[in-house]
Amino acid sequence: MPTAARIDQLLTQHALRPTPVRRAVLGVMADTPFALSVGEIERQLAAGTDRVTLYRTLKSFEEQGLLHRVMDGTDTIRYAACSIECSAGAHFDNHVHFRCTVCQRIYCLYQVAVPAVVLPRSFEAHTREYLLGGVCGTCQSGD
């Protein structure tokens, strides 16, 4: 887990005031190697954390390049910590996501690039998502 000083530094670098909720959310996300839903994040925060504040925090983090949304093949939106290449308004989206069919966790595979896709002339892509399914290393080893 990053230290409190490192969390404050990250928030300041991304032009965000280090509030208690922002510190807590960033701590949760930095400590988790897979994408989390809002409910999963909320369960790891102090009891009584205001849900509106949580949603605003997630939105700010996404806008400033600290988190990105991960679609999981359902209607659930999940969030994952961004890579170092992300910045405010410009997320590094050239990576694959992997959904484990056993534990249901979604991992960002930054080292695996999304393959190039050539679209027909009359099509224009604005987003791209690449989700693979299978069994993660933890579930394979039974840990």
Rank of each mutant, 00 (worst) to 15 (best):
H126F: 12
A90S: 12
V25D: 00
M1V: 14
C108W: 03
I41V: 01
I7P: 10
Q64Y: 08
R22K: 14
R105H: 10
A30F: 08
L16H: 07
C103V: 07
A5Q: 14
I77P: 04
V96A: 05
L58D: 05
P20K: 06
F34E: 12
R69I: 06
L11Y: 11
V28Q: 10
V38G: 13
T101Q: 07
C86T: 04
A30I: 00
R43P: 07
G27I: 10
Y110V: 02
S141V: 03
A81S: 01
Q104E: 08
T12S: 15
H95Q: 10
D72T: 06
K59A: 15
G65F: 04
T74K: 08
Y55C: 10
Y107C: 10
Y107N: 14
M1Y: 11
L131A: 02
G39M: 05
G133Q: 15
C86K: 05
Q9M: 08
D75W: 08
L11E: 09
R6L: 10
D72M: 01
P2S: 07
Q64G: 00
P115H: 03
Y110D: 09
L58N: 06
L109W: 09
S122V: 10
A5K: 15
D143F: 15
T3D: 08
L119M: 14
H68C: 06
N94M: 13
C82F: 08
E85C: 02
R17H: 11
V118D: 02
G73S: 09
P120S: 02
A80H: 04
Q104I: 08
G73L: 09
T101P: 03
P18G: 05
F61D: 04
D8H: 13
L131R: 05
R99G: 06
E129L: 11
L132R: 02
R43C: 00
L11I: 05
E42H: 13
E40K: 00
E40H: 04
D8P: 03
I7M: 14
G133M: 15
T127D: 15
A4V: 07
L10T: 04
A30L: 00
F98G: 01
M1F: 07
A90K: 07
Q64N: 11
Y79M: 06
T19D: 03
L131K: 10
F34C: 09
L132S: 12
A113T: 06
H126E: 15
L36S: 03
L131G: 04
Q9G: 08
I106F: 05
G89I: 00
Q44P: 07
S122Y: 14
H97W: 01
I7T: 14
R78I: 03
Y130N: 13
E129Y: 09
A35E: 12
L26Y: 02
Y55A: 12
I84A: 15
T138E: 14
